[in-house]
Design a protein around this nucleic acid. Sequence first.
DNA 1: CGCGACGTTGATTTGCCTCAACGATTGTGG
DNA 2: CCACAATCGTTGAGGCAAATCAACGTCGCG
Lengths: 193, 193
Amino acid sequence: MNNSQQKILAHVQRNILLSDKEATEFLSILSEVKLRKKQQLIQPDQEVSSEYYVVKGCLKAYYVDINGDSHIIQFAIEDWWISDFEAFFIDKPARLFVEAIEDSVLLALNKSSLETLYKRIPKFERFFRIKTTNAFVSLRKRILSSLQKNSKERYIEFCRDYPTMEKRIPNYQIANYLGIKPETLSRIRKELA
Amino acid sequence: MNNSQQKILAHVQRNILLSDKEATEFLSILSEVKLRKKQQLIQPDQEVSSEYYVVKGCLKAYYVDINGDSHIIQFAIEDWWISDFEAFFIDKPARLFVEAIEDSVLLALNKSSLETLYKRIPKFERFFRIKTTNAFVSLRKRILSSLQKNSKERYIEFCRDYPTMEKRIPNYQIANYLGIKPETLSRIRKELA
DNA sequence: CGCGACGTTGATTTGCCTCAACGATTGTGG
DNA sequence: CCACAATCGTTGAGGCAAATCAACGTCGCG
């Protein structure tokens, strides 16, 4: 068993317990994907047949609107999952880009394999229910934060919640994620320093 | 079987199939709750032992911040679920109010009963995984919308996505949900008319 | 070395907020 | 059933946080 496989097994077994056989079956449907910095994993209009577990590296999911402006919806680092989830779950063409911010190693989990897995080992319904629940709660927090806080407070919160990301991701991309301009973030950082 | 029970069964069976026995078992753990307009279902610091299916009526979940300002996170009408989900899922005290906007009829689903239900009828893991997944996707859309759109565009989107709510909910509460002031919404509506 | 990527700073503009005042409508107690 | 208060929406004037536009410095990499 290689390193990536050990990592995702540990990740899954924080929420459900697997027999050796089940673990093996789960690992058998995963495939490793490597990306260099700036390489794209998903592009608009593509079919999104997988979601991806991040073994190593850092990625972003972003939407490019009709004016050509980008909007970063999610970052993902080690132990996070990333995809165009809407496209993946609802079976429609991608609307997002997913792109590596650093050289990255991922494990791809294919949708039809996942459906089969649900049938064979229903525990995985539980695992992904719990994962999705946590993600849902995080998004609620983010919405509340955007309703309640100004730019400076949101930046401080981001640094507190994701200290690792704050160190690895360029400021202009953090600004974009927070919905502010790089100039504004620069001024906020100056104030805080 | 009463009306509320028929309604929630139909709702559940849009995603999973239940035998009569399973349906009966599911219904047995639900209890009906009635609320008059302005009555509160959940208040901060309370334990949140249930999530609620809306049979009839309209409710809101909102946070009151340290300055006393309210921020509406969610509305719920017929066929929606509502609670302080963070408190419910993570087992911590409520931080939100949940309050009836209209006289309402709900079905309460208790957390420990739900855990038992998951063990006895694992299909329900699937049902709530799918529900949570859809909710997750909706929140992503809302975040994208707040990153990408100005107040006017967000209001138009709201009216398009939730025409029923737009008709039933006072404008100042819609404004609050959208993160703008009632005066601003008034001016937007004037422009649109 | 040279160029592109990234961050910073200044001047100006703008979308939305704040504060204040005022109708219209609803509902409620006398 | 009316009077009055509370709720809700509208309008206007002025202010502020963040966007915009423009210029420039620095760093790292091909």
